[in-house]
Design a protein around this nucleic acid. Structure first.
Lengths: 158, 158
DNA sequence: GTTTTAGGTTGCAACTAAAAACTCAATTGC
DNA sequence: GCAATTGAGTTTTTAGTTGCAACCTAAAAC
């Protein structure tokens, strides 16, 4: 338990992807993450809702806790129950998850996803997740290039 | 070969995620996609750069072609060679891949990714991938809610 | 015409996932 | 107070995947 994608180390440069995949690259990880974003907090809830095998769910939850994506916290009112809840690190996976989901929706078998992620303020659906330039323009692949770090013109980035 | 994540079907609503994961949920898929975005086109190039087993690479490339993410095209000049190149469907995975990579970079072992994805126009790095409201505001998890499709106020969306 | 190169297969060992049954403590019903 | 139920896991068994190494085939190079 704990190696998984070590050999992915580099395939043309250093990259955060292998690290991300080490945490989230297993079969059910994203589905569990989505369940967490949907407000499911307990083992049995998730098991019932996802239909995942119990041992795998236990293993994945353990791993997500180990990587700091979920927090494991016994409930005070019913001490059999354990709450899994998203940490800040877990919450910051939302753009990746939504991007994936939108892609699946766009190219999938037609059906729109439900429920829809909406701005709390006006209850309108969020935009499609895209790549944006510093000035805010949305960019497609043909608008982009890879630049070596050493060649970056520093400019108080981010 | 070919079922993988069929049971993921629904875990609290319809969702594009399972479809996305069916295409991209396997261990090496995202690494191969990244290789493709980095300009690698041939089997041997990818094999050498990723260090993946040949049978798995063959299998994954086959699957990525089957799902329409890559196109397989024999080279006219050297007919042993085969070019794998991104389709529009594959290109549209870029936001998901970059979101994942940025997450890994942010929470990973420190090292910045290299090379950096930049706006071709000014060679400045792209922004962090985020969720945006219709009016363009960047939103975090606590600014968002799930809304059932039936409750959406239609307004000539997107 | 032998050697090399590109892109794969095949066979087999090691690992990982799934389903179902089992554990074990906390809680509820009576 | 005691049996039944529930929550959160383990264990066991079976099935499917991954990875390595070796092999194969056609096209190109020499």
């Amino acid at each position: 338990m704990g190696k998984l994608i070590e050999n992915l180390a580099d395939g043309g440069g250093e990259c955060g992807l292998p690290h991300a995949l080490e945490a989230m690259g297993e079969r059910w990880s994203f589905m569990i993450l989505r369940a967490a974003f949907n407000g499911l907090k307990h083992f049995e809830e998730m098991q019932a809702s996802l239909g995942i095998a119990r041992n795998i769910l236990a293993n994945r939850l353990g791993r997500l806790v180990a990587t700091g994506i979920l927090e494991r916290q016994p409930c005070p009112d019913d001490r059999r129950k354990i709450e899994y809840r998203l940490t800040a690190k877990g919450e910051s996976l939302l753009p990746a998850m939504i991007a994936l989901r939108q892609w699946g929706e766009r190219w999938g078998d037609g059906g729109l996803s439900n429920p829809v992620l909406c701005d709390r303020r006006d209850r309108q659906p969020v935009q499609r997740v895209r790549i944006h330039a510093q000035d805010g323009r949305a960019l497609d692949w043909h608008d982009l290039t890879w630049v070596d770090q050493s060649e970056l013109v520093s400019e108080a980035a981010e």
